[in-house]
Every structure is written in structure tokens, then in C-alpha cells.
């Protein structure tokens, strides 16, 4: 069961704004989905590890020339100044 308060809390954690109306709808839909997926708790038995992958390391050498990607990457940012990405104020006074 997911209620409107849960939706509000999750939305805050996920940095998404939801209106009162959306909270109502989402609480209903998410309750249905959560009910449905609860079936996974019925499964028992031996498990095989899902991932057989290992951490893959590379030699720590031969770095690429510094700054060759900077310009392209800065271009994708909403706002940049010089070699920096500009963001809204993080710490607010109120």
C-alpha cells in the first residue's frame, strides 16, 4: 500500500515535483504495482549468482592529453563560463 504521503516523500527523494492530483493517481497506481510485484517474495530455491562479472582494471598509464574533451563536454551543459559549468546557488540563506 502506497499512500499520498509516501508519494510525497519519494518525490522529494527523487527530486520530482508532484501535484495533489498526481499524488492521488500515483498512490493508486503504485499501490497496484507494488501489490503485483510482491509475488517475488514467494520464490524460494537455490540461486545462481546473477553477475559473473569481475572488476576490469586498465593500466594506469598513457593518459590522453589534458583538456581535449573539455570543450565538447562543456557544450552539453545548460550554462558554462570559461572552463566551468555554472549552476544555480546550492546553499540558500532561507
Amino acid at each position: 500500500m502506497v499512500d499520498k504521503e509516501d508519494v510525497q516523500r519519494l518525490a522529494e527523494l527523487a527530486r520530482i515535483n508532484v501535484t495533489e492530483e498526481e499524488k492521488e493517481t500515483l498512490a493508486g497506481e503504485m499501490s497496484d504495482i507494488v501489490d503485483f510485484v510482491s509475488q517475488v517474495q514467494e520464490i524460494s530455491g537455490d540461486a545462481e549468482p546473477v553477475l559473473e562479472h569481475k572488476n576490469v582494471m586498465r593500466e594506469d598509464g598513457e593518459p590522453h592529453e589534458g583538456g581535449i574533451y573539455t570543450e565538447d563536454l562543456l557544450k552539453t551543459a545548460a550554462t558554462a563560463k570559461g572552463k566551468n559549468i555554472v549552476v544555480p546557488k546550492i546553499v540558500s540563506n532561507d
Binding site: 508519494v7 519519494l10 527523494l13 527523487a14 508532484v18 500515483l26 497506481e29 503504485m30 504495482i33
Partner: peptide
Amino acid sequence: RRRILLGTY
């Protein structure tokens, strides 16, 4: 948005 909230849950 629905899936992000579900994943967060």
C-alpha cells in the same frame, strides 16, 4: 516519473 518513484520506493 512513475518508474523513478517506483524505483525509489
